[in-house]
Design a protein around this nucleic acid. Structure first.
Lengths: 335, 335
DNA sequence: CTGAAAGCGCTTACAG
DNA sequence: CTGAAAGCGCTTACAG
């Protein structure tokens, strides 16, 4: 009686074959509404036997949901961020699919909001996850006027915006503490752009460690907005002359530039200068020498972002909200 | 009269306000079916004025389409592939959104087909693009039994499967030929992971060039699975001692690691050793010296994959089907 | 050229 | 506990 090798059942087919109403079938599947145990079992058995899967799109239309989540990614990003995005996406997809949501990706070109407009107009998603590096204040402002709920990955200064972020301050403190405990007394800091929140958090962690151990911070060894080779090269010369015994870099890119400055100036690492980074990347692992750094749980970050969004969407994610954690990895550069 | 600041119109609202039937509105929008010019203009004007956008999900349900395309990505991939996936995704998304399709990503873990099963069961996509590195024969077989149409990015030996691919073998042959014609006679090869198809194609290109020019290949200079700094460093020492006069690296990451090994060992490029890469990246361009390599049009590859799938889905992509090409860029490293 | 009606495959008050 | 009916927002034969 089947037309093809494998018939796709609808809820109507099932209702007819079982001699019940489709209301009943729907209830057996969703678990909502009262239904007799016997009836439910019959329906469920039939469904299992015939491998019936409800049409998610039709359900979505009736419920005014899509079961899709958009992930905003930057159209262009530097190689260093690759690991971050991959791990993050894995985390997001994992929890999304566990809740039968799918991820629609949208590539955002700089501050161009046209792709976001399109997303909103098409109404194919229930919410948006905005990944780090897409988050400019212009984009944030645009999103707030959107009707779509959203979650940011990365810091935000706007208290109304839900976000998830790494424990930058705690991690920065821990890394710094370890260096201090290893005996360094004149730590320099190469900080990133001060307009980023993450810069502030990491800086604070650096200060916290000094304070806790009662070791003074030498302000002359602190260089913020060190986001290009020239500034860094200059800073490295100065801090070396000022007698620094170690350099804490706020991220892997700064650290790479710092390492090549040191190489250029023939300052030996770790003999003449220790180096550590507050953000890990494969690069640092393979540097010569390998660089001590903090490894964040990026997959976990993606998971948390998705969980948070699902909560906003009214789902009840069963996943435990584990605090995001990190590891300090001590490599040759601080030995 | 509006409940919210911005009312979302449905096709019913428009029909009512305009005193026509929703059939008419639908026709004005879709352009299908006969409709008077005057009526159409009225409808279109109203739509524009009120910024009406049809509900894509509802349309999909009626048309039995989803306007979604799945992109299968490997859950884990090495750094080497990062640029490839990014560019590819950009190309795919570009074409897709020009045709009002969205991309749903699905992370495939090795040969685990459960994510593909889920995609199929949920019926949220009209077709699938399978990116390189996901394509195992097991996955191919599974997909052929799926009801979803699909296109592969990367090579396949199955003539029934639609695919797009870079001309890896031809390009590898061309690059190698040029080096041989420049007089090198002892070319070493640093190859990637042998489980990837692309590794085989590039290796074959390397062999083809030698064969065509009647120059023997020295098997002692061939190192496969050279995907980390240690292996590469070791290989570089060996091939140098074995008298190699040039190194062909299968991709940009291998090449970067190769270059830093050479620098460490104080082997001068290009004086003592020529270096070339079978896959370009910004890195290589900015290396010191800049490295000769093959530049593929990866964005174009993604575009073609999407165009091909859209054709299979019965769309009429206006994009021109330009043959995928590559450039050999000769830089200082082989001079 | 235009419209009433049925349908896509579900959900969900409402009534019994 | 169960079902008939209306509805989600569209499309598309069919009839005029």
């Amino acid at each position: 009686m089947e037309t093809e090798e494998k018939k796709i059942y609808t809820i109507d087919d099932i209702a007819r074959e079982l001699g019940v109403s489709k209301t009943t079938v729907s209830r057996a599947i969703s678990g909502k509404g009262r239904i007799g145990q016997a009836t439910r079992d019959r329906v469920l058995a039939f469904i299992k036997e015939h491998d019936y899967r409800p049409n998610v799109v039709a359900r979505g239309l009736a419920q005014r949901k899509t079961y899709n989540i958009a992930l905003l990614m930057p159209k262009d990003y530097v190689a260093t961020d690759f690991l971050f995005f991959k791990d993050c996406m894995n985390g997001i997809c994992e929890v999304a699919s566990a809740h039968d949501y799918d991820i629609i990706i949208s590539m955002v070109d700089g501050e161009d909001v046209s792709q976001i407009e399109r997303l909103e107009a098409n109404r194919k998603v229930d919410g948006i996850i905005v990944s780090r590096a897409v988050v400019s204040s212009k984009i944030q402002k645009y999103l707030k006027n959107c009707r779509e709920p959203f979650v940011l990955i990365g810091p935000t200064s706007d208290p109304e915006i839900p976000f998830v972020d790494n424990k930058n301050q705690e991690a920065g403190k821990e890394l710094t503490s370890i260096l201090l405990m290893k005996g360094m007394r004149h730590l320099a800091l190469l900080g990133g752009n001060e307009s980023y929140n993450v810069t502030g958090s990491r800086y604070q962690g650096f200060l916290d460690a000094h304070q806790e151990l009662g070791i003074p911070v030498d302000k002359n060894l602190i260089f913020m907005n060190a986001d290009n080779q020239l500034v860094i090269s200059d800073a490295v010369s100065k801090l070396y002359e000022a007698g620094a015994d170690g350099i804490v870099c706020m991220d892997d890119v700064i650290c790479s530039m710092c390492m090549s400055s040191l190489r250029e100036k023939k300052i030996q690492v770790p003999m003449q200068m220790k180096v550590a980074s507050m953000y890990d990347s494969k690069n640092l692992e393979y540097h010569n020498p390998p660089v001590t750094s903090i490894k964040f749980d990026t997959t976990g970050l993606g998971q948390m972002a998705c969980i948070k969004l699902l909560e906003i969407l009214g789902e009840n994610p069963q996943e435990e909200i584990k605090p995001l954690n990190y590891q300090v990895i001590l490599r040759e550069s601080t030995q």
